[in-house]
Computed example of a mutant assay.
Amino acid sequence: MRRDPRAAALLGPLLAGSDQPHRVRRAAQGLGLPERGRYAVVVLGAPVAVPAVPAVPAVPAVPAVPEGNGERWCWCGRAGVVLLGPGGPAGPVAALAEAGAGPGGVSPVVGGLAELGLARRLAGAALAACGPGSREIVALDERLPAALVASRPELSARLLAEVFGPLLTLDPAERALLVGTLEAWLECGGSVGRAALRLRCHRNTVFNRLRRLERLTSRSLSHPRELVETVLALDALRLSAAGR
């Protein structure tokens, strides 16, 4: 993995959104990277400080992610640029998770260094979808609805209040029970029976909890539009302090 201090100077403007040809050429030549290629950007939630060495400024530590399958890494602060091999971004996501580097967001694949600004913004949106206290590494395409919710906090707060307002007044343990049942039901594809097996309770218990949640939210889980509102509100709750 590259830890070349030149990476910050060369890639920094590109990650900030510049796509000027001379900057792209300079970064490509300075770091030995192709101008066109399959790139992704990773944004970590917080760099890990390393002890300062006399006469040498302290710099953020970056995760020791092995380069394999043709991947090449360059780091610029909390942002990592990876030139992907044939395996795509799944390998880097798994390697970062195994290295305990989270929380982090990973952009979709872009077609060259000139698109790193876009990739940096999308990776930031993926990071925002991780939620408070998360240590996971999230690819944006796996969390698009949550990223949409996180990108508009004022609308997210309004959605949460409108849909889950009465739910938020419950005792935290009672609220967690209803929310956990909803999450299990969604993860089980809307099957009450499978959710009951996962929760180790009777299917009627799951059914009754879901009916109570419907009454509290005034949304029916059997109506597609109202179900969408409920699922988005669930993402808003997970990303909020109330969801901790």
Rank of each mutant, 00 (worst) to 15 (best):
G112Y: 05
E183M: 12
S218V: 15
C188L: 08
A150C: 07
L216Q: 04
V93N: 02
P224T: 07
A241M: 14
C188E: 10
P34N: 03
R3Y: 13
L182T: 04
A236M: 08
V82S: 10
G12M: 03
L170R: 11
R211G: 12
L155E: 12
L213D: 00
E229T: 07
A129V: 01
L33M: 05
L160P: 00
S220Y: 09
L239Q: 06
A99C: 03
N208E: 15
A9Y: 11
A195C: 07
V43N: 05
R198L: 15
R78S: 09
R158L: 15
A16G: 09
P60Y: 08
A241D: 15
P51A: 00
L118D: 10
E35H: 13
L160Q: 00
D19P: 15
S218C: 14
R3Q: 12
L10M: 00
A52N: 12
R121I: 02
P108I: 00
H22S: 09
R158V: 08
S222Q: 14
G87K: 11
V56C: 08
R238I: 12
G45L: 03
M1E: 15
L127C: 05
P153I: 05
N204A: 14
D19G: 09
C76R: 08
G104V: 08
W185F: 11
V231K: 13
V206N: 07
R238F: 05
L83A: 07
G102F: 10
I137T: 05
C201Y: 05
V110Y: 13
I137W: 02
P54M: 07
R121N: 04
R219V: 10
R36W: 15
T205H: 15
A114S: 02
P172N: 07
R135G: 15
S191D: 06
A79D: 07
P132N: 02
V48L: 14
N69E: 11
R219E: 02
